[in-house]
Every structure is written in structure tokens, then in C-alpha cells.
Amino acid sequence: MNERLFGIHGAALTLRSERMGVIASNIANAATPGYKARDIDFNAALDARLDRSRGTAAGNAGIVWRNPTMPSMDGNTVELNREQVAFAENAVAYSATLSFVQGKVNTITRALKGE
């Protein structure tokens, strides 16, 4: 039902929210020695999720390690500027997906009310 109503946007919104958590984890661990920054490859993760909801694939796909421009001596691979940009980009994409979902909901509501 969820997939028929919202199409790709339901899964995309969940994934955007998960990615926000992952990037926030990176920002939180900016000073932890030995911490390896993670990210979610959005396209791969979305494909995997859609496959899973169709019952063909499973697993935690899309998690990638960040490749640092300059590795630091304590083994931490968080680069604050990159995390900031990724977080901002993800927030904008979340807003976009949310407005798609909202549009769908509005359409359905109107159809139900018969306006």
C-alpha cells in the first residue's frame, strides 16, 4: 500500500533520514581517534531497499567508508567540511522528498473529499 501510494518517495524519505543519522554520527566523532567515517551510497541503498520490498534481495547495502583527502595521524577519517556539505545536501534532498510525499497526500485528500 505504502509503495503504491508514495512510489519511490516513501523509501527515499526513510533512507534520507537514516543518512542524516550516519552523517551526524561522523560529525559527533570528529575528534575520536581511530574513527572511520561512514556514509550511505544513496542510489545503491535505494535500489537495494526497493528490491527487498519486492522480495528479491536483502542485506545492509549502501554503507560505504569515506575516503579521506588527507588521512590524519590518529586514524580518524572525518573531514568536517565534507561532512557539513554532505549533511546540507542530504537535508535539502530530504525536504524535496518530503514535499513530494506531501503533494501525494494532498492529492489523495482532495480526491477523498471530492473537491
Partner: peptide
Amino acid sequence: QNLVQALQTAKQLMLETLRSQ
């Protein structure tokens, strides 16, 4: 500062999601 900013953005997005009917 970075943490506070990230939290603010996340909170704003969550509130937006809650407010949408």
C-alpha cells in the same frame, strides 16, 4: 558549533515532517 548546527537542521526537518498533514 557543528554539532549544534546539525541538530538544529535535523530538528527542523523532523518538525516539518510532523506538521505535514
